[in-house]
Design a protein around this nucleic acid. Sequence first.
DNA 1: TTCTTATTGTCTCAATTTGTTACAATAATA
DNA 2: TATTATTGTAACAAATTGAGACAATAAGAA
Lengths: 249, 249
Amino acid sequence: MSTRKLKQPPSNEEFIPHLAYDSVIFGFNGKQLKILVLEYHNTGLFAIPGGFVKRNEDINDAVKRGLKERTGLSDIYLEQFHTFGSVSRSSAETMREILINNGYEVHNDHWLFDRFVSIAYYALINYEDVQPRPDELSDSINWYAIDDLPPLMMDHRAIVDKALENLRENLDKKLIGMNLLPAKFTMKDLQTVYEAILGEKLRRTTFQRKILAREILIRHEKLFTGGAHKAPYLYSFKDKNPIKGKKYA
Amino acid sequence: MSTRKLKQPPSNEEFIPHLAYDSVIFGFNGKQLKILVLEYHNTGLFAIPGGFVKRNEDINDAVKRGLKERTGLSDIYLEQFHTFGSVSRSSAETMREILINNGYEVHNDHWLFDRFVSIAYYALINYEDVQPRPDELSDSINWYAIDDLPPLMMDHRAIVDKALENLRENLDKKLIGMNLLPAKFTMKDLQTVYEAILGEKLRRTTFQRKILAREILIRHEKLFTGGAHKAPYLYSFKDKNPIKGKKYA
DNA sequence: TTCTTATTGTCTCAATTTGTTACAATAATA
DNA sequence: TATTATTGTAACAAATTGAGACAATAAGAA
């Protein structure tokens, strides 16, 4: 019943050789910080989403293109954080395993088996409005809690760790919460995002005071959840890009 | 008298195509923060030092190799800070101008005229123990004060600006001063480095108090300069890599 | 209606950190 | 022995952060 596969892998003509990108896509489900991890067909190999750069394409655009394909979202918050360039990070064996198990016909000196330098980005997206789609090579793509990841292939674990490190550093400078929460949220929601990213509990009153002191939020109506207690206000972010020097955590 | 040049440019066989590095090399002359800028023969083009990555070489090693060639130093403090990947940053015309004015014979589809992605690093070196050497393509290499740079070719000015931005951010986290000063220095020396990097004056007593509170310095003998005033202590850094969370500026 | 409960918004006061000024302790030199 | 410029530290004020207290709810239960 099954036909012989004759698929062609990405072409050398179209893409810059030796160059790839990888993306750590963060989402927040209301409780935990998660990232998208894909699994390749019949290999048991887990990886973060990556791709190649077209010969006449900005790297930023290549990453956006990949994210669009997998999440359906455009206008995603993206941050380039490191380029991984050791020789040892590349693994021809791993690439071969992936391609073979996807039914590709590839010769031994195919460009995908070469050494690759990877430019790594992290993305922040609103968990709720995404239905992740696996790409052609992948079996599945799923959210995994940041502290419960499957073993990742090659150096992908190191990439994720470095992404998280950078995300934590940028928590001070950029408005991280804006990209991980819906437009309106409670102060507790925001605090939970901060705690999930930092991996530690914060003091409620201090957090609230500091966030409010920054004057980056607009207060809206109250949210009545049905809980037997005072209803919290809803907030939204005032500005897209204030960049203040103040700390809030 | 002069012979016809028949030099060969770097070979496509040896290097990864489309991939380069650029380095912003910071030094401190006791007063100002400076960087190394080179000028290409007969072109009036100024650039920061860069190079290519061998096919079987870690990118970090490629940068170290380039730095060693130009400064004679190994064991240089290096920090990768960004990868520049827009299509528009590359300029075949500029490359052609440089190669032609160096007497190279290159065909029109030479690999150096292709689009390049550049991984950018900054380095911190001790100004005093360096005698910069121009490379084969360059006329000269000289120190320029960070606020008095010549016009730089292509996007090199943006690379320098981003390097400085990153250096300022890392002033908190890493022991920047260690790499820009001699082994022993006065508190005033250290403050001057901080001021040169930040581009602003700091309050003497607060600076001294905060630095001392971090307990990263060892106090040595006094330094008698011959000035008609109290002699300052000399200090050195205690540890290579403490990484404290405290701020000191 | 009136309790009870959990949560929220805000206030207060203590502890810590930072900003600012003051001042004594030098190294030369006059 | 004065004079001068600079350095190391102390002292106090101002600002920020930590830690608790507490009144104001929004339900549901009594």
